[in-house]
């Protein structure tokens, strides 16, 4: 026996703003994907170490000053990309703020 297809129903809402419900969904999907990658990365490292291609102990060592300095610019760029949106500033000039077309009338 098979079930006839039905139109989707609205998901349950738990937060006052349903945007939080939905953003939590995206966040948990990313968290899951992050863990899947982490798990795969570890497996890859284990296989490479087994074949002698890499030295796991070297990977675990604290990076020296030159290596940290080398990666600083990249690290800063990552943080910039992550945190710049918190300022709420435009990248390209355009009309600012929240807008609505609800009250717009021709000639008004």
């Amino acid at each position: 026996m098979t079930r006839e297809s039905k139109p989707p129903r609205a998901e349950q809402q738990f937060f006052d703003d349903p945007a939080i419900d939905r953003i939590m969904g995206a966040f948990m999907s990313l968290a899951t994907e992050h863990y899947v990658l982490l798990d795969r990365f570890r497996a890859l490292e284990r296989e490479l170490a087994k074949s002698g291609a890499i030295n796991s102990a070297a990977l675990d060592q604290e990076p020296d000053e030159s290596e940290r300095a080398e990666s600083l610019a990249d690290r800063n760029a990552f943080v910039e990309a992550l945190m710049r949106p918190l300022l709420g500033e435009q990248d390209a000039l355009g009309a600012p703020g929240k807008f609505s077309l609800k009250t717009t009338k021709s000639g008004a």
Partner: peptide
């Protein structure tokens, strides 16, 4: 299979 188990394990830890 590995990705499936990793994801399900993650969800189980969260649960």
């Amino acid at each position: 299979d590995r990705s499936f188990v990793a994801a399900q394990d993650f969800l189980l830890s969260a649960k």
